[in-house]
Design a protein around this nucleic acid. Structure first.
Ligand code: FES
Ligand code: FES
Lengths: 141, 141
DNA sequence: TATATACTTGACTATTTTAGTCAGGTTTAT
DNA sequence: ATAAACCTGACTAAAATAGTCAAGTATATA
């Protein structure tokens, strides 16, 4: 089970964004340099974040992105959802009544994986961008 | 983040094994048929489980595998560890002082991913094969 | 108004990982 | 003897990931 770069980068970039006030836009170029993430890749990621209204774009010179909500209201769930980083533990289709490998019933472990998925998603629902920024500024003091 | 088939299959197969007493070996062929998992793939998986002493093999006709410990003592952690299904949330080398993307310090989100990794591993450390079997027999009643 | 900065989009590609397959063994109960 | 079942290593197809690349459009500012 591993976290993909896309998900990690999305959160890294937003954490970077969240450190600034929500007035002056931050350019992807700056984030790219500070966080060491490819600019082109960041653009893909922010395109998705914008469509899900997590960030707002400001075009033109001095443009960039700003958060579209308060950092407190942006949970990891929202971020991961926006960039299609999803937790997937079962093999079967979730809503179907069939099990994995085309079986007619759910397998012995199906319930376990469901529990696991919930366990992980709980974490993502609790954590907000604000938590992340706070933790970091505190550590710096 | 997704669970790989190897990990899922390992647990499925052991759950199947655990339903029987620990005296008569269960052949991989049977598990393969019951669980719909390729026999050749199962053999790879059980080779690793045997090396980590989670199962014992009985060769020859009527042979197969039996659990090497009590179901209660086999945690998901042990199983995943045996088949190299590991939780990996950070990009940087864990012990190194360098951050991800070769940076000289840990990134803004490093701590968060560490927490996440612990959160997930906690789940694996708590759950045993016994829990899994119990849950299933109970549901059948 | 010219220009540079920075967002926007879609297609393309290399790399890595996963999920197996395949071919050849060895052991042992019957 | 023979068939069932374990054992091993090498190989491979497919999928997912992690990008790159190219060709735009919008706008602040000099
Ligand atoms: S994971 Fe849902 S049936 Fe096996
Ligand atoms: S994940 Fe460890 S430094 Fe970024």
């Amino acid at each position: 089970m591993k976290l993909t770069s896309k998900g990690r980068y999305a959160v890294m970039a937003l954490a970077d964004l969240a450190r600034f006030d929500n007035i002056n836009p931050v350019s992807l170029r700056d984030i790219s340099l500070r966080q060491g993430i490819s600019l082109d890749y960041l653009e893909q990621i922010f395109s998705k974040l914008r469509k899900k209204e997590i960030v707002q774009s400001v075009r033109g010179t001095q443009g960039g992105y700003i958060l579209n909500k308060k950092a407190k209201e942006i949970k990891l769930t929202n971020i991961f959802d926006a960039v299609d980083e999803k937790v997937k533990t079962v093999q079967c289709k979730k809503d179907s009544k069939k099990g994995c490998n085309g079986k007619s019933t759910k397998c012995l472990t199906h319930n376990l994986w469901d529990e696991l998925e919930n366990h992980i998603n709980n974490f993502f629902e609790k954590k907000s961008l604000e938590d992340l920024v706070k933790e970091n500024t505190e550590r710096r003091i």
